[in-house]
């Protein structure tokens, strides 16, 4: 038998679809604003959970940056020449080092320069005047070529130079820097782990909050399903809710970080000046902004999506 088909055709326009999204976006925002206390509590918890890894990241990322900078600079070899050499012998050794393979750049600090530098930086100026001879050796700073900067290669170059006549010592002091790099590496990993855990926490907070809202609106959802509401239609307002939670949580986190940095800025500057370095923290880190601004809303969306899915699958047998 043939059964006549009568399908009501509704004008489905892209504009209409967009309008509905806009409506859902605005109405869920309005709904969150109507329960300010509970919304604020949820958003604050999310904000704190996000501010923690964000703050650690802000501290570690400049250290990592400095570390890289230090490692590059410190891969210099200091070649200390014997005291008894005269200027032409020193120049000769300097020329030979420059022709050595794997050497990019050299800088000669002769005895007088070394003395001047020491005088200005050490604060022992007056004491030095008492000495009859200049006790400082001439030093040649050797910068290995870029492709030779691995610690082993630098070490090998130093060993070679050490064996030369007229060279007292050749020093590469990278050990502590490498230890420091290892520590910051562990710290970075730790922060990534912390961020992952707190990210899951944010997901669960948003998911659970929305789960409670869904439970409160079970009847409404059931009736929407009864009159032909698709899963996408039922899901949409909750997705917007998750999005708003994520977005406002990110804003709170950013605010908290701003407050923390404002409080820490001065002490940090003081500490930095003691080490002749700039230890300022910057909130306008693009990675941080990207992670907070996109990551948090995405977590909100995902949390909401999982909650709705869980509800719809658990009730699909009854409806």
């Amino acid at each position: 038998m043939t059964i006549p088909h009568r399908t009501p055709q509704y004008p489905k326009r892209r504009f209409n679809w967009l309008l509905q999204h806009l409506q859902d976006a605005v109405s869920t925002l309005g709904k969150l604003c109507r329960t300010p206390l509970s919304s604020l509590l949820t958003v604050t918890v999310i904000g704190i959970a996000l501010a923690l890894p964000g703050g650690f990241y802000l501290i570690v990322s400049p250290i990592q940056h400095h570390n890289q900078h230090w490692t590059d600079n410190a891969s210099t070899i200091s070649v200390y020449l014997a005291q008894h050499l005269n200027n032409s012998e020193i120049n000769q050794i300097h020329r030979r080092i420059r022709q050595e393979p794997g050497v990019a750049e050299t800088h000669l600090i002769d005895k007088t320069q070394a003395m001047d530098e020491f005088r200005t930086h050490s604060g022992f100026g007056a004491a030095l005047d008492l000495l009859e001879h200049n006790p400082l050796p001439a030093v040649i700073l050797v910068q290995p070529a870029l492709n030779q900067q691995h610690i082993d290669q630098t070490e090998r170059l130093a060993t070679r130079l050490r064996a030369w006549p007229g060279v007292d010592a050749a020093q590469v002091d990278l050990q502590w820097l490498h230890r420091f790099a290892a520590i910051t590496h562990i710290a970075t990993r730790g922060i990534a782990l912390l961020a992952a855990l707190l990210g899951i926490a944010v997901l669960l907070i948003i998911g659970n909050t929305i789960r409670l809202h869904i439970q409160n609106q079970q009847d409404e959802i059931a009736i929407m399903q009864l009159v032909g509401g698709t899963q996408a239609f039922i899901r949409r307002p909750y997705l917007y809710e998750g999005l708003w939670y994520g977005l406002s949580g990110a804003l709170v986190a950013y605010g908290l970080l701003f407050a923390a940095i404002t409080l820490l800025q001065n002490p940090l500057r003081q500490l930095g000046s003691l080490y002749q370095t700039n230890l300022a923290l910057h909130l306008n880190d693009p990675t941080l902004i990207l992670l907070l601004g996109c990551g948090s809303p995405l977590l909100g969306l995902l949390g909401a999506w999982l909650s709705v899915r869980q509800h719809l699958t658990s009730t699909s047998h009854e409806r």
Binding site: Y10, R13, V227, G228
Partner: peptide, 10 residues
């Protein structure tokens, strides 16, 4: 409600 869920125009 049935019209809203079916995306009928306002």
């Amino acid at each position: 409600l049935p019209l809203v869920v079916a995306s009928v125009r306002h």
